[in-house]
Amino acid sequence: MFEARLISATILKKILDAIKDLLNEGTFDCSDSGIQLQAMDNSHVSLVSLTLRSDGFDKFRCDRNISMGMNLGSMAKILKCANNDDTVTIKAQDNADTVTFMFESPNHEKVSDYEMKLMNLDQEHLGIPETDYSCVVRMPSMEFARICRDLAQFSESMLICCTKEGVKFSASGDVGSANVKLAQTSSVDKEEEAVSIEMQEPVTLTFACRYLNAFTKASPLSGQVQLSMSADVPLVVEYRIQDLGHIRYYLAPKIED
């Protein structure tokens, strides 16, 4: 028996919004430590890794490890049926071929359940090595989203250059060129507004704007985003989900021929 309850459906809607543009389907691996999903996008350029810890749920029970392959478009249809303040419970029997989403209104007067067929997905699992990154940038997630949106107008690719002075995002194309420089903030009213840079070595890398823009769909999950970079390895874009876990996107760089 698997059962996981979240007080608010909003968080699950936001998580789905953060992955459904990149993935058509995904396997949710459930164990007593929580729920994990790892999947590459269709073109195998990026990897999504979602971790939701069991202690972040209002209720969590997982008697046996189960892997639930879900069509994310179908899941989105179901989650549209939940109000933001509904409690959501995800339930499945051991070895079941369906999963049930139950939504309860705050006054418990409306209860709906939606059963969805599970899929057998033959997905490759990738081992992600522990890496000490040369540069780790933390910045407001909305600022990162804004920069990705703005620079995507100029080119398919964006250069991210990180030094101890700051981080620079650049794009150039037929229209012209764009550069956005962010310096580390000295003092801020709110922690969420801070830009911080931990640098061992300066790094310059090139990435596809399309994927960076897809990652920023996770912005509603967290006020801050963390970018981890080292030369010639995938960028990690991480959004922490308060008290519940995180979503990490790995993006392969573009390299010189």
Binding site: V45, L126, G127, A252, I255
Partner: peptide, 14 residues
């Protein structure tokens, strides 16, 4: 000219 790499070039298949 820069070429887009695949994420599979960096992580081993488990």
């Amino acid at each position: 000219k820069r070429t887009q790499q695949s994420i599979r070039n960096y992580f081993n298949v488990k």
